[in-house]
Amino acid sequence: MAAGLAVIYLPLLLVLINSLNRDRSFAWPPTGLTTEWWARAWQSEGARSALLTSLRAGAGATLVALVLGTMTAFAVQRYRFFGRHAVSFVVILPIALPGIVSGIALNAAFRTVLGPAGIGFGLLTVVIGHATFCIVVVFNNVIARLRRLSPSAEEASADLGADSFQTFRYVTLPAVRAALLAGGLLAFALSFDEIVVTTFTAGPGVQTLPLWIYANLARPNQAPVVNVVAAVLVLLSVIPVYLAQRLSADTAGGRL
């Protein structure tokens, strides 16, 4: 276990240390420590613009995933209809497909469907592309919570005279709220650091933070700034994943 964790996290630790490296290259060990590159990264217009684009794309994809993933989870768990298991399989499938396959498929679909309508590649296509796999994490979190939720509370609410909307607002929503938050955070984290699907759906005018890192990685003068941006990307990805893990643990333990 220790060896496995070292393989995963030591490279991330090196990225964080290199962001403070006084040397302009990726040389190891560091010749000294400095925070100069962090200040330069903040002053980089391209990095700030890419960060804003990633935040907008992540927020859009998360919103779409929350709506569609939650509706699908309720439909699959609460109703019995022909093809119910097939729907579950189709919803989960995108997370298992290689990113490059999904990217190529989405690129062809956008050219065929959106192209004739005059809608080109941009932030909208990125949001749609990210939502295809973000829906999975929301769906899995919500349906797992619904499976543990006893219908007796909803039945009691209906017996007391509450209509469907009131029952959902006062009984069902509080019960699945933690699962929704956990799924939303995981969806945002997945969207924020996605690069393969983004490459095929972004178009020339849209550059997310991972795309900015990839484009500047081969430029020697940008190496220190790239290290800083990569460190920021790691930190911003860890926070929602940690919060989602805590929320999922609370949900599993029955605490809301």
Score class of each variant (00 low, 15 high):
residue 1 M to N: 11
residue 6 A to P: 02
residue 7 V to P: 00
residue 7 V to D: 03
residue 21 N to S: 15
residue 21 N to A: 13
residue 24 R to E: 15
residue 29 P to S: 11
residue 31 T to H: 08
residue 38 W to S: 02
residue 41 A to Y: 09
residue 41 A to P: 03
residue 41 A to I: 09
residue 44 S to V: 02
residue 47 A to S: 12
residue 48 R to G: 06
residue 55 L to Y: 01
residue 57 A to F: 07
residue 67 V to F: 12
residue 68 L to K: 06
residue 68 L to T: 07
residue 71 M to R: 04
residue 72 T to A: 14
residue 73 A to P: 00
residue 74 F to S: 04
residue 75 A to R: 08
residue 75 A to W: 05
residue 82 F to P: 08
residue 88 S to D: 14
residue 90 V to N: 05
residue 93 L to T: 09
residue 94 P to H: 07
residue 96 A to I: 11
residue 97 L to G: 03
residue 98 P to T: 13
residue 98 P to I: 15
residue 100 I to M: 02
residue 106 L to W: 07
residue 108 A to Y: 12
residue 115 G to S: 14
residue 120 G to Y: 06
residue 123 L to W: 10
residue 131 A to Q: 04
residue 132 T to I: 07
residue 134 C to H: 01
residue 135 I to V: 15
residue 135 I to H: 11
residue 136 V to M: 06
residue 138 V to H: 03
residue 138 V to G: 05
residue 140 N to F: 08
residue 141 N to V: 05
residue 143 I to T: 12
residue 144 A to P: 09
residue 144 A to N: 12
residue 146 L to V: 13
residue 146 L to M: 11
residue 149 L to Y: 12
residue 152 S to L: 13
residue 154 E to T: 11
residue 154 E to C: 10
residue 155 E to S: 08
residue 170 Y to P: 01
residue 172 T to Y: 10
residue 173 L to V: 12
residue 174 P to G: 11
residue 182 A to T: 10
residue 186 L to N: 00
residue 187 A to Y: 07
residue 187 A to C: 10
residue 193 D to E: 15
residue 197 V to F: 04
residue 200 F to V: 15
residue 200 F to L: 10
residue 200 F to H: 00
residue 201 T to L: 00
residue 201 T to I: 03
residue 202 A to F: 04
residue 203 G to I: 13
residue 205 G to N: 14
residue 211 L to F: 02
residue 215 A to N: 15
residue 216 N to L: 12
residue 218 A to H: 11
residue 219 R to S: 10
residue 225 V to E: 05
residue 225 V to W: 00
residue 226 V to F: 07
residue 227 N to M: 14
residue 230 A to V: 08
residue 230 A to L: 13
residue 231 A to M: 06
residue 231 A to C: 11
residue 234 V to C: 08
residue 236 L to G: 01
residue 236 L to F: 14
residue 237 S to M: 11
residue 239 I to K: 05
residue 239 I to P: 00
residue 239 I to F: 13
residue 243 L to D: 03
residue 245 Q to S: 13
residue 247 L to K: 03
residue 248 S to H: 04
residue 251 T to C: 08
residue 252 A to V: 07
residue 252 A to T: 11
residue 254 G to Q: 10
